[in-house]
């Protein structure tokens, strides 16, 4: 039981990170019906920028950990958002009126460009970051197995929760969210009402990239290591999470992320670590057979 609880906590923390990345996939899909395969690499770049920013701050003498972390987070979000904006501008917007597969191919190309760029610029070796936030809360200690929530895990889950709330409020309440939903439903009609749809799409990419940067930052402080390849693996997992939750659905992305995180952790804990990806993807297949639109997705209704 204690063992299960511990794995559950680990799974939730990992799932939060996946969920944040999955949000970016699902948002972009909702608005332009395209899978942004470069999103995983945007997440990786977010992690790297966080690392670089942290080292810069240390060099500048900012050593108070909470302040440094906060600054790192803000810097990572801003610069990664810029990356997201540029990617959309360079690789997708020129292909907006092209055939459907063109932007997707372009996205796969962009993923390679970003991955290789970081590999060349930062080297292929794993970059470590010393643990910044030690300690944790001990929940159960009965002499045998100790169940503990580390402070990093608490930060990861709370940050994710806060972002989810803020993000849902933006989508539900603000002008921007309204425009996003309008573009999602009928982009041409939105344009006919004077909405600059290109700008709304750009903003979507910027927000998605900023969320991915937060995920990258949390990955960095959670695992303490980062390399240019994490974008691929985490990207695929988060994409799976978005599909599992029902692509296009925002709560679905979060739910899917948590589900994938939990499946992976539980499988590693009780069966074998090597096959955890197999487990995650198998569950995806099973879910899609019985619920083709994912857990919370709505069936696609063709417009007449």
């Amino acid at each position: 039981m204690e063992y299960f609880l511990q794995q559950f906590i680990n799974g939730i923390a990992l799932g939060s990170i996946y969920g944040l990345i999955a949000l970016g996939y699902t948002m972009v899909y909702g608005i332009i019906g395209m899978i942004n395969f470069a999103h995983g690499d945007i997440f990786m770049i977010g992690g790297f920028i966080a690392l670089i920013a942290f080292l810069c701050l240390v060099a500048l003498g900012v050593t108070a950990v909470p302040l440094a972390l906060f600054l790192v987070l803000i810097i990572a979000m801003l610069i990664t958002a810029l990356y997201g904006w540029v990617v959309e501008r360079v690789a997708y917007r020129p292909l907006r009126h092209s055939f459907r597969l063109a932007p997707m191919l372009s996205a796969i190309g962009m993923a390679f460009v970003l991955g290789n760029f970081v590999q060349i610029a930062q080297g292929a070796r794993v970059k470590p970051l010393p643990p910044l936030i030690p300690g944790g809360l001990i929940l159960i200690d009965n002499g045998g197995f100790v169940v503990q929530v580390s402070n990093v895990q608490i930060i990861v889950v709370l940050t994710t929760l806060a972002l989810m709330v803020i993000f849902s409020l933006i989508v539900a309440r603000t002008r921007l969210g309204r425009d996003m939903r309008a573009c999602e439903q009928d982009r041409t009609m939105a344009a006919l009402l004077g909405v600059d749809t290109d700008r709304v799409i750009s903003t979507t990419f910027v927000i998605g990239a900023a969320l991915a940067a937060v995920a990258g930052f949390m990955y960095l402080i959670y695992y303490g290591v980062i390399d240019f390849y994490i974008g691929f693996v985490a990207g695929i997992k988060a994409f799976t999470a978005a599909v599992l939750g029902g692509i296009g659905s925002l709560p679905g992305a979060m739910l899917g992320g948590l589900a994938i995180g939990l499946i992976e952790t539980m499988w590693s804990a009780y069966f074998s670590v090597q096959y955890r990806d197999v487990a995650a993807f198998s569950i995806l297949i099973v879910v899609l057979i019985f619920m083709p639109t994912g857990l919370l997705g709505r069936p696609e209704i063709e417009k007449v």
Binding site: R178, A182, Q185, G194, V195
Partner: peptide, 16 residues
């Protein structure tokens, strides 16, 4: 925008 509320439909039109 059939999934949005009646009011929201009118607000999107006042985007600018």
């Amino acid at each position: 925008f059939s999934g949005m509320t009646v009011l929201e439909n009118l607000l999107v039109a006042q985007h600018n």
